[in-house]
């Protein structure tokens, strides 16, 4: 069975690239371009992992994370932050809010990101 990934990313090109990579490895992918849409899809689709950007229009990634973790129906869905923020404060804040991992986009290749996903999916 294919694992379902939700990708919340506002940059269209990055979203397409990651989407392509995940599809090529037979993942089922759903995408959202802002925080609000992302939060709705987390609730409605119950993906197995969420890849979450932080700087998003409207509701930012930290808030999406916080709300998803507060809602008992979505609290158990693992969320990996995939952002270009990456100062120690940001990382600590993300992990404290319940993110499974914090990946700086510019420091990881798509394959390395997929490997992280796989390790979380088991």
């Amino acid at each position: 069975m294919f694992k379902k990934i939700l990708l919340i990313e506002d940059d269209k090109f990055l979203r397409e690239l990651m989407n392509k990579k995940l599809l090529s490895l037979d993942f089922e992918v759903s995408t959202a371009a802002d925080g609000e849409e992302g939060l709705e899809k987390i609730k409605a689709e119950k993906p197995e992992v969420v890849l979450l950007d932080l700087i998003l229009p409207g509701i930012n990634g930290f808030e999406v994370l916080e709300r998803a973790k507060k809602d008992p129906t979505t609290a158990n869905i693992p969320i990996i932050i995939l952002s270009n923020l990456g100062q120690s404060e940001d990382i600590e804040k993300g992990l404290k809010l319940g993110a499974k991992d914090f990946l700086v986009k510019a420091h990881f290749t798509p394959q390395e990101i997929v490997n992280k996903l796989k390790s979380i999916l088991g």
Partner: peptide, 27 residues
């Protein structure tokens, strides 16, 4: 600085990911 860094990193990430995927034969 942190916004500038973020803005600069985004297109660089796109370049990195694209090149890597081409180099890895994904496309």
């Amino acid at each position: 600085v942190s916004i500038a860094a973020h803005q600069l990193r985004t297109p660089l990430s796109a370049i990195k990911w694209t090149l890597r995927m081409i180099l890895d034969g994904d496309v």
